[in-house]
């Protein structure tokens, strides 16, 4: 039995960058399983949270943050980006492939963009296959 691969994505998002109602439509999509983690600011993404998402079985992790010049905490998005970059390297070292983790800037409430980002992520993950460490 070869079930089609349905990627599990953990979505970290800054509550300021991403409209909750938009996420509902994404949850409805049936080619992907999404677990969302709301962050009051994307700077709360710690390295370990990203790694733990993979540990708990995510095939991919997507971090949605505000555009860099729109962060309410000024530096949050930049920090998030740096941390993600760091963890991408760690994932490469682990052999999980850093592409499983991505960070994107979205401005609040733009559901169409987030949908597109998500589909792109799904495409990348379909390419990479399931998380080998899951």
């Amino acid at each position: 039995m070869n079930k089609p691969f349905k990627p599990k994505i953990t979505l970290f998002h800054c509550i300021n960058s991403f409209n909750e109602s938009a996420s509902l439509s994404l949850n409805g999509a049936n080619n992907v399983e999404i677990k969302t983690v709301r962050l009051p600011c994307s700077s709360m993404v710690k390295d370990v949270f990203l790694l733990r998402s993979f540990e708990s079985g995510a095939d991919g992790v997507l971090v949605l943050v505000c555009p860099e010049d729109q962060c309410r905490y000024v530096e949050g998005s930049i920090r998030a980006k740096k941390r993600v970059g760091w963890v991408q390297n760690v994932l490469d070292e682990i052999g999980l492939d850093g592409r499983r983790l991505s960070i994107r800037n979205t401005s609040s409430g733009n559901g169409a963009t987030t949908d597109k980002i998500l589909q792109e992520t799904v495409a990348v993950l379909t390419d990479l296959g399931p998380n080998p460490a899951a």
Partner: peptide, 17 residues
């Protein structure tokens, strides 16, 4: 603490993989 947690997580992933 943070580095310990991160390293542990990374190692667990390696070994699990």
């Amino acid at each position: 603490e943070d580095e310990v947690a991160t390293l542990a997580s990374a190692l667990r992933l390696i070994f699990k993989k």
